[in-house]
Simulated assay, not measured.
Amino acid sequence: MKTLVCITFAACGLAAPIAAFAVPPSAPLTRAQVQVELMRLEKAGYTPSAGDEADYPANIQAAEAKVAAERAKQLSVTRSDSSPAALVQ
């Protein structure tokens, strides 16, 4: 029983550093990436210069939802264009 406990602790001790590196930390966004995202939100209807702070959360959330829907639509079109069935026809 004592050996089993020692082996279990040793295995956990060896696996912990591997688990720490399993998910790389996300890199901070660059200025260009932030500007592109802001342009997408503005195209979706968000106006940061409007100064309407009462509707701020709802406005940006609506714009983010529109951007996410556009990305999903583009992704589905891209996937359907590259599917094997589309290539056969």
Rank of each mutant, 00 (worst) to 15 (best):
G45H: 06
G45V: 01
G45A: 01
Y46C: 03
Y46D: 06
Y46V: 06
T47F: 03
T47S: 12
T47R: 07
P48L: 03
P48W: 03
P48A: 10
S49H: 05
A50K: 14
G51K: 04
G51T: 09
D52K: 07
D52C: 00
E53K: 07
E53Q: 09
D55R: 15
Y56S: 05
Y56C: 07
Y56G: 06
Y56W: 12
Y56Q: 11
P57K: 09
A58S: 14
A58K: 14
N59W: 02
N59M: 11
N59Y: 06
I60M: 08
Q61W: 03
Q61V: 00
A62V: 02
E64L: 14
E64M: 13
E64V: 04
A65F: 06
A65C: 04
A65I: 05
A65P: 04
A65L: 10
V67P: 00
A68P: 06
A68Y: 07
A68S: 14
E70L: 12
E70F: 07
E70S: 11
K73L: 14
Q74A: 15
L75I: 05
S76V: 05
S76D: 13
S76Y: 01
S76A: 14
S76N: 10
V77T: 11
V77Y: 03
V77C: 01
T78Q: 09
T78I: 06
T78E: 13
T78S: 12
T78W: 09
R79I: 10
R79A: 13
S80L: 08
S80Q: 11
D81R: 10
S82P: 02
S83I: 03
S83N: 05
P84Y: 06
P84M: 02
P84K: 00
P84T: 05
A85S: 10
A85C: 05
A86F: 06
A86D: 05
A86S: 14
